Simulated scan of single mutants.
Amino acid sequence: MKSKLIMSGLAALGVMAGTSGAYAQDAERDAIAERLAPVGQLCLQGQDCGTAAAPAAASSGGGGEVDGAGIYNNVCMACHETGAAGAPVRGDEAAWAERTEQGFATLLEHSINGIGAMPARGGNPNLSDEEMEAAVAHLVSPVMEVPELGGGEEAAAEATDESASDDMAAADDAATAEPAAEEAAAGGDSGLDGEALYASIGCAACHAAGVAGAPLIGDADAWGPRIEQGTDALYQSVFNGKGIMPPRGGSSASDEEIMAVVDYMVSQVQ
């Protein structure tokens, strides 16, 4: 009887030891997977960016303050640490110089509503204005003095009002330029410098490096099928956006300016 009890006890200890070892191996694998997980995801306007790019609410722990650095690391750094799609790199004073002159409220408004290739709220619609404010503050803190946080919605609303006024003025300018644009569409010579516009309105950011599949300027093989569609089709693709390219390439350029850029890019492969 005693030997049976001893044998049963040893068997039980063996099962427990085996189970404990399996749990330890699982925990180790989970830890390795967590360490190897990517810190961010590149997400451009027009893509299905998902809603899990960052926690809906990130706090610093005890004080309840929003963790701007954590949101930045989860959502923003994929572009702003690498310069992907022309994003200004964090801490690069030269790249941020003109942007910081616009003021923190305008930068916040751009991050909330999107600008250029950057989608609204960095591609995570779950982020609140307060969380966006904290993330932007962390992003720009090396290159500008950040105002006291807490007025995210008010600051963004103020900047949006100013932006709306600018948009109305731009719309008036576009209406004035429409006849000239129609002339250019019909084959007229606008006299605009397409090469200079290509660099200044942001097209070079993608088409000089092939970012996100953009056809490289001068690459006849990449442009051949596109040119076969006709120049008017190319114009419309830029006006309306195509694939991950936002309408007008994310710029405020007029129709005439965009057509001059398209004409320049086509000329590089003909």
Rank of each mutant, 00 (worst) to 15 (best):
V89P: 00
A185Y: 10
R29D: 02
D129I: 11
N126F: 07
E228F: 03
G152D: 04
G188E: 08
S163N: 07
T231C: 01
A97F: 15
M144R: 13
A222K: 02
K242S: 06
A58W: 10
D232L: 09
G114N: 03
A208R: 12
V261I: 13
Q41K: 15
S3R: 07
P215W: 06
L197N: 03
A17P: 01
S267N: 12
D221S: 14
E162Q: 12
C43A: 13
A94R: 07
G91Y: 08
A171C: 03
A177E: 15
K242N: 09
S165I: 13
A185H: 03
L149R: 13
E101C: 03
S254K: 01
G62S: 10
G86Q: 04
G188M: 09
P246M: 02
E130D: 14
A205K: 12
D263R: 10
G150N: 05
A117W: 11
S3M: 04
G70L: 08
V66R: 04
A78E: 00
L44E: 01
E154V: 15
E182L: 15
A209R: 12
A220S: 14
W96Y: 15
G123Y: 04
G116Y: 10
I115F: 14
Y264E: 04
H80Q: 07
W223T: 00
Q270P: 00
L36V: 13
A17E: 00
A33H: 05
C79Q: 01
L139G: 00
A95N: 05
A52H: 06
E145P: 02
A57I: 11
G241F: 03
L44M: 09
R99C: 02
D67R: 08
T176Y: 13
D189N: 09
A57P: 00
L107A: 04
S163A: 15
G150C: 10
I115Y: 12
P225T: 07
L5E: 12
A84K: 09
D173W: 08
S8Y: 02
G18F: 14
M132W: 08
F104Y: 15
V136A: 11
A37K: 14
A170K: 07
T82Y: 06
I32W: 05
A260P: 00
A171P: 00
A97M: 07
A17S: 10
G213P: 02
A24I: 10
H110N: 10
A157L: 06
A117G: 01
N74Q: 15
A52N: 11
L216Y: 01
I32M: 07
S128Q: 09
A24G: 03
A175V: 14
G213D: 06
A260W: 03
F104C: 09
N73S: 12
M7H: 00
G116Q: 08
L42H: 11
F239G: 00
M259I: 04
G64Y: 14
A84Q: 08
V15R: 01
